[in-house]
């Protein structure tokens, strides 16, 4: 509902809210940066990792000065931030290559997986949510609700294993690991253009998207039931509009506001849970890289992943907050 008394976008309250949120976001990123930097400083000595057995004290001192490790802590932290902003995250202890290169190489796999699962979750979430709301009490709707309950309580990795067991081991229809054949478009390697690449996407994206789908479905169902009770829907019925027009043009449109915000926040979770899915399916993405980095204590990769994911999370939260503020007038008081 439009509130005529609500402030216009140039309202000073709105500007102060935006400024406050942006300031908070920057503060969070600075703190995360400090955590990432502390990992370098306190977890293991980089000198140990770079110099071999036959080092002299002079070597150590020279390298220390060369790397700027003899500088005071705030100076080092500032230089670390400066480098991170420019995409320079150092060199992986394990692979001996710049972390930025490795991340860039792995990013397409994770982003394609997240994109497909997000799409599946939103599409089937809304469709099934509307279906279970309109057909409330029928056997089919109850079955969907019960299955969704099981979907929420199963841990992600067990869903993945179950799917592998059914579709790879028993039916032998779909691959159980990897991305299949990929095509390189510049630096971006895509699995969308080959048959095996598309087949390889199916099981991981279902595993990753199932939980979010259930969440969206339940939300749409609740909102839809709530909206269908409103006066304007009854009025629309009284006007003799057809069910289809009422359900989709009037009701569904009003349920989508909370769905958009929740979906936005879930985007972050998809990235986080991609770690689990990628491990189950040995999907060569950023999440698998992160898990391997933890196993082998590869600090630069861990720190870079932390920074990258924080920027993503903070940006998503900021956008969702601002969207919500723009949509819901009650928040502006």
């Amino acid at each position: 509902m439009l509130d005529l008394a609500s402030p216009a976008p140039h309202d000073p309250r709105m500007i102060s809210f935006i400024l406050r949120r942006v300031f908070q976001s920057i503060l969070v990123l600075l703190i995360v940066g400090l955590v990432a930097f502390s990992m370098f400083t306190f977890v293991g000595d980089p000198i140990d990792n770079m110099l071999g057995q036959e080092r002299t004290d002079a070597d150590i001192a020279r390298l220390r000065a060369q790397l700027g490790l003899d500088q005071p802590f705030p100076v080092q932290y500032f230089r670390f931030l400066e480098n991170a902003v420019q995409g320079n995250f150092g060199i992986s202890y394990r692979q001996g290559r710049p972390v930025a290169d490795i991340l860039l190489e792995r990013a397409p796999a994770t982003l394609e997986l997240a994109f497909v699962s997000g799409f599946l979750a939103i599409f089937f979430g809304i469709v099934l949510g509307v279906f279970t709301a309109l057909r409330r009490g029928t056997v089919a709707a109850n079955a969907v609700m019960t299955i969704s309950l099981i979907g929420v309580s199963l841990p992600t990795f067990l869903i993945g294993i179950l799917l592998i067991y059914v579709f790879s081991v028993e039916l032998d229809l779909l691959p159980s690991f990897g991305r299949g054949d990929t095509v390189n478009l510049g630096w971006w390697s895509t699995g969308f253009l080959t048959w095996s690449g598309l087949k390889a996407l199916i099981l991981p994206s279902i595993t990753l998207g199932l939980y979010q789908m259930t969440l969206i479905m339940r939300l749409v169902r609740t909102e839809m039931l709530e909206v269908l009770r409103q006066d304007y829907i009854r009025f629309a019925r009284a006007r003799g509009l057809r069910d289809r027009a009422i359900h989709f043009r009037h009701a569904l449109k009003n349920t989508l506001v909370p769905v958009i915000t929740v979906t936005g926040l879930q985007l972050g979770s998809i990235i986080a849970f991609a770690i689990i899915t990628e491990t189950v399916f040995q999907w060569p993405g950023v999440g698998l890289l992160f898990i391997n980095a933890i196993q082998f204590v590869d600090i630069p990769v861990m720190a870079a992943y932390l920074m990258l994911i924080s920027v993503m999370f903070v940006a998503i939260n900021l956008i969702v907050d601002l969207l919500y503020f723009a949509i819901d007038p009650r928040l502006r008081t």
């Binding site: 969070v28 990992m39 977890v43 972050g268 979770s269 986080a272 849970f273 770690i275 689990i276 992160f290 898990i291 980095a293 933890i294 204590v297 861990m302 932390l306 994911i309 924080s310 999370f313 903070v314 939260n317």
Partner: peptide, 15 residues
């Protein structure tokens, strides 16, 4: 709370 708990746990475990 901005970050999923499992991610925080992984990070603490790694450190």
């Amino acid at each position: 709370l901005t970050f999923p708990a499992i991610l925080v746990a992984m990070l603490i475990f790694g450190i």
